[in-house]
Amino acid sequence: MTATVLDPSPVAAAFRDQVRADVQRLAEQGRSLRVVGLISQEKGPAATYARYAQRGFEDVGIELDLRRTTAAQAEAAVAAANTDADVDGLFLYYPLTDRTGDRWLRELVDPRKDVEGMHSFWGRLLYENTRFVDPERTVRAILPCTPLAVLKLLEAAGLHSDRENAPLEGVTACVINRSDVVGRPLAAMLANDGARVHSLDLSGPLTFEPAIGRHAHDVRASDVDRRAALAQADVVISAVPSRDFELVRGEEVKEGAICVDVAEYTNFAPSVQEVARVFVPRVGPLTIAMAARNLVRLASARQPRS
């Protein structure tokens, strides 16, 4: 078996078309959309991501204003964007300070402008599997853009059932790395859609039990190690940001699995493509499309500027 390599760019293009139409609709109402991106680095992954994001946003008619800041100025820069009526969204390109400082900055972003979906307001709704903000179910909750991109790619790879509230029922997934930005919310989103998820991290394994027969997923301690988790998984998603990570090898993976590489440095050995059914080598283009879609939803839910 040789894996089909799923390029995220065509999937992202379809979502960009949808976003472009929504942006045009808002423009016809006299509303242009503007995002502020805060960045502290001129080189490296954050700078590269910011350049791609700027092109992606501008492609759908959204202005992305990249602003340089420092660790000392970052908090004031977030506050200024929050209170600026001409700013519809805020994007933070990490690192801006240190790990603790960046976590605090995420909490300072106005949730109504949080295109990344990383504020705890959105996190609470995600972990409680609450999909709408209002009782009338007219305003959708915002989901973190990278995990959301992964779910859309799994759908494009053909991984879904006919059950509306449990499209991943019967699926076993393995998510390697339990970061607050990608791994943890992704495991929760998969489980909320009906999958059983083995979450592997340096702090030990956890299992996210599916939200079937209950409102939201459940998390329990687990003794499922890497070998067992990979052998069981219909889906393997790895997001370890380290060159020292022991690559996932073909002999570890269940034949016919879908494998998704979210990491800055590849997390999969070439041999995986000899065993997997579908291999997704990156998610970046779709992450940017999901952030743009989040912005449109946030802007649509807010009152027009006076």
Rank of each mutant, 00 (worst) to 15 (best):
S120D: 15
A216Y: 03
T100N: 02
A211N: 07
G117I: 02
V278K: 04
A13Q: 12
H119P: 10
D234W: 09
D102F: 03
K113D: 01
R112H: 06
R137K: 13
Q29P: 05
E255Y: 07
S222A: 03
R196K: 09
G204E: 05
E42D: 14
C259N: 01
T287C: 13
W122S: 07
D193S: 13
D193L: 08
A79P: 03
H217I: 00
L154G: 05
A211L: 04
A239M: 02
E107P: 10
V175P: 05
T266G: 14
R124G: 01
T97E: 09
V197G: 04
V253L: 06
P205C: 00
L96A: 14
A85C: 02
L90C: 08
A27F: 03
A157C: 01
R178L: 06
F57Y: 12
V115I: 15
R297G: 09
E209S: 02
E209T: 03
L143Q: 13
D225K: 10
V109L: 12
V175D: 07
A229G: 02
N129H: 12
G89Y: 06
L64K: 11
L153E: 02
V219S: 05
P111E: 14
D22R: 15
E252F: 00
A53R: 15
M118N: 02
L206K: 14
A231S: 14
R99Y: 08
C145I: 09
M290A: 15
S32L: 12
A289I: 15
T83W: 00
E274A: 11
P8I: 04
C145T: 12
Q303L: 11
Y127T: 10
A263F: 00
I39W: 12
V253Q: 03
P45N: 10
A211H: 01
R112V: 03
P147V: 10
P281G: 07
D223K: 14
R282P: 00
A72G: 15
G56S: 15
M290N: 11
D244R: 11
S306I: 09
A14H: 11
S300D: 09
A269N: 01
D59L: 12
T4H: 15
L126W: 09
L298A: 12
G170M: 09
C145P: 04
Q24Y: 00
F91G: 02
V236F: 04
L230T: 07
V260E: 00
D261E: 04
E42V: 13
V280A: 04
V11L: 12
G284F: 09
F57I: 13
V296F: 02
S179H: 07
L66R: 10
G30S: 10
H160V: 03
E107D: 10
A81R: 09
I142H: 06
L247I: 06
E128T: 12
N192A: 12
V197P: 07
A71D: 04
L153P: 00
Y127M: 12
V262M: 12
A191Y: 11
V5Y: 01
S40Y: 04
E164D: 11
V23D: 04
S222Y: 01
